[in-house]
Design a binder for these strands. Structure first.
Lengths: 361, 361
DNA sequence: ATGAAAGCGCTAACAC
DNA sequence: GTGTTAGCGCTTTCAT
C-alpha cells in the first residue's frame, strides 16, 4: 500500500534517493540523508515491491529448481540443501516436480521464464525424448539470451554447466565392493531406462562386472521406478527370475528400502542370505533394518557448488562443469555371500505369495 | 525480449487489444482480430511478462507454503500435495523451510509480501513465542488489507481459516487402540513443546489415559525433535527412565522409525516385547521393519481443501475452518503387551551402550 | 469493438 | 549528493 514515493515525501527527499538507500545500491548518499530515509521507511513499515523492481532490473532473485518428485526423500533432501544455499546467497527458491513428464517440464520452463526467474537448476536427470530435447534447447536459448542461469545438478544436456556425480563410476564402486565381499551373482534393481542417471548406473554395474570377468546377464537386471513401491515389486520379480543371486544393487535408496519389505516378509535374511545395497545415502538409510549400505552422495556440497555456478553465470562468467566424488558407505545390509546356490524354495514361494497378496505389509 | 507492443505491431492492432486477448479477459474482441493476435503472438514466441502483469493487477498467481523442514518426509509429502493442488488451480508454489525459527519465518513473510504472493499457507504448527506472535499478527494484517489469503494446514493462529486435523483426538485414538490391546504402561515420545501440534498430541495421550483411569506419569514422556534422530535418542532415554513400558506412542513417524533402530540393535523385539506407534502415516511406514502402526492423516484431501480456502479467500469470501478426520492404521509394530514387568536388564544395557557409542548404526 | 493514454512502483540515466 | 524524468511491460479506464 505504501510506496517509495510515500517514503520520499515523509523523509523530505526524492524517490530516487530512497531507492538508492533501500535497494542496496553503492551510490553515494549523505549519511544523514540515509538515516532519515531509513527512519521514514521504518516508521511507514515500507516494503519495496519486488515486482516493480524486477520489472526494471530484469532480476528477481528467484531461482527455480526442477526435480522429478519432491516427495521422494532424496529430492526432499536435495531441495532442502538448495534452499539453504540459495538463502545464504540472497535468493529465493521456487520448486517444481516434473514427475518426469516432458510436457509438464517444458510448460514449467516457459512459465518460469515469464516470471523472470534468474536461474533454473535441473536437479532431475534428463528425459530421453527427442522432441522434448528439441523444445528444451529452444527454451534454453531464450534463457541464455536473457542472461539467465541454467545449471544442472544431474546428468542433463551436456551443454549446461553443472556439478554432478559420476553415476557410472559410483555404481561401479559399489559393485566392486560387493565383488570384494566375494559375491559373483549380483543382480540390479535398475531405474527408469529413459532417465540418464539410471542408465549410467546400469552401465557402471555392467562394466564393473565385465572388468571382473563376469558376464552381466540380462535376466539379472530388472527395471522399475525409483520408488519404494517400485523396489518392492521389482525385487520379487528379480528373485523369481534369478534365485541364484547373492547380492542386489538397487539404483536408489528408496528402491532398496522398498525391497527390504518383501524380503523380510519372506524370511530372506539381509545380509545373511542376500546382500542389498542402495544409492544416494538418504538420511533414512541409517534407520532402516538393517541399516543400508549405499553410495554416499555429497548433496550439500554439490548444491553449494551448483549455486556458485548459478551466481557465476549471472555475473556473466562461463564456469566449467565439475564432478564431485562419491563413496561406498558400508552399513548392515551387505555381507559375504551365502553358501547355498539358490534362495530356498520356501523363501521363493513366500516372495511370490507376498506379491500375489498385493504387496500388503 | 519481445513485448506486447511487438505483438500489437505485428498483428496491426493496439497493445490494449493484445492484452485483452492474451490475458484471458472476458472483454469482447472480434473473433477475427483475436485470431490475428493469437497468430502474431505464436509467431513471435511471445511470453507475457508476469512481473509487469503482477505490478498492475497486484496478483501473481503464486502461493507460498511455509513448512518446518522440507526434508522431513511428512512435509515433503505435504508440499507435493500442495504442489499438485495448486497447479490444478493455476497457481505456482514457492516453498520455504522455517526450521521452526521465528525470525526466519517472519522474515520470509515480509519477503513474500514484497513479492506480492497471492497467499500464504502455514503448513507448520505455530511457534509458541510471544513476540513472534505479535509481529505475526501485524504482518497478517498487511496480508488481510491487501486482500491476500492466509490459510493454515496446521494448528496455528485460530483467527486464520484452515483445514486441520484434531491432533488431540487423533493422539487419543491411538492411545485408545493401545489400551484395547491390553497395554497399561504406555509411554510417549513427544515433539517439541513449543509447537502447538506436539502439545495437542501430548494432551490427547494424557486425556486418553486419564479417561481409562490411568495416571499419566511424567517420567513416561520424553520430549525430542520430530526427527528420526530425535526419536532414536529419546527412546533410549525413555526406556532408561521407564523400563516398565510395554508400548510407546511417538508423536511422529520419523521419531518412531528412528526409535526402531536402537531397539533393533538392543534386541528389543517390536512388537513382541514393545509396541511402537507413530503419527502421520508417511509413505515409508509401510516399508520399515516392522511396518509401522500409525495415525493416518489424509494429506491430499486436506491440501485440496486448503487450496479451496485460498481460492475462496482470494475471491473475497470468508470461509470457515474445517477439521478432517484421522484414523488409526494398524500394521506390524503393535501387538499385545509382553508378560514381564520390565524390559530385560540385558536389553537395557544394550540400549545404553548404543547411545554411548554415539548412536552408530 | 478498438485505441489512446494513464499509471502500477521501481531504477537508472542524466542534470544540476 | 540529490532531484527530475523516462521508462520496464502490462492492464484498464475512458474515448471513440
Amino acid at each position: 500500500v505504501t510506496s517509495i514515493s510515500d517514503v520520499a515525501r515523509s523523509a523530505g527527499v526524492s524517490s530516487a534517493t530512497v531507492s538508492r538507500v533501500l535497494s542496496g545500491s553503492d551510490y553515494p548518499v549523505r549519511e544523514e540523508t540515509r538515516q532519515r530515509v531509513l527512519a521514514a521507511a521504518g516508521a511507514l513499515g515500507f516494503r519495496p515491491n519486488r515486482l516493480a523492481r524486477g520489472l526494471v532490473t530484469a532480476r528477481t532473485n528467484i531461482i527455480a529448481v526442477i526435480v522429478h518428485d519432491i516427495s521422494d526423500p532424496y529430492f526432499a533432501e536435495v531441495v532442502r540443501a538448495f534452499e539453504d544455499e540459495a538463502r545464504a546467497r540472497g535468493y529465493q527458491l521456487v520448486i517444481s516436480s516434473s514427475d518426469r513428464d516432458a510436457d509438464r517440464e517444458l510448460e514449467w520452463l516457459e512459465l518460469l521464464l515469464s516470471y523472470r526467474v534468474d536461474g533454473v537448476i535441473f536437479a532431475s536427470s534428463i528425459i530421453e525424448d527427442r522432441s522434448y530435447q528439441t523444445r528444451l534447447r529452444e527454451l534454453l536459448d531464450h534463457y541464455r539470451t536473457e542472461g539467465r542461469a541454467v545449471v544442472r545438478f544431474a546428468p542433463h544436456l551436456a551443454a549446461i554447466p553443472g556439478v554432478t556425480i559420476d553415476h557410472r563410476a559410483a555404481a561401479a564402486s559399489m559393485i566392486d565392493y560387493l565383488l570384494t565381499l566375494g559375491h559373483r551373482e549380483i543382480g540390479m534393481l535398475s531405474g527408469p531406462p529413459d532417465l540418464r542417471a539410471a542408465r549410467h548406473r546400469l552401465a557402471g554395474y555392467r562394466s564393473a562386472l565385465e572388468a571382473a570377468g563376469i558376464e552381466p546377464l540380462p535376466h539379472r537386471v530388472v527395471e522399475a521406478p525409483f520408488s519404494s513401491d517400485g523396489g518392492a515389486h521389482a525385487v520379487v520379480d528379480l528373485l523369481a527370475r534369478a534365485p541364484e543371486l547373492t547380492a542386489i544393487f538397487a539404483s536408489s535408496d528408496a528402491m532398496a528400502i522398498g525391497a527390504l519389505r518383501p524380503l523380510d516378509q519372506a524370511g530372506v535374511a539381509v545380509p545373511k542370505q542376500l546382500s542389498l545395497a542402495g544409492f544416494n545415502d538418504v538420511g533414512l538409510c541409517r534407520y532402516v533394518t538393517p541399516p543400508l549400505t549405499t553410495v554416499h552422495v555429497p548433496i550439500r556440497r554439490q548444491a553449494s557448488e551448483v549455486l556458485d555456478l548459478v551466481v557465476a553465470r549471472l555475473a556473466g562468467a562461463t564456469p566449467r562443469s565439475r564432478t564431485v566424488g562419491t563413496e561406498v558407505v558400508v552399513r548392515g545390509s551387505t555381507g559375504p555371500p551365502r553358501r547355498e546356490a539358490e534362495l530356498s524354495a520356501a523363501s521363493q514361494r513366500r516372495l511370490q505369495r507376498w506379491a500375489a497378496d498385493g504387496g500388503a505389509p
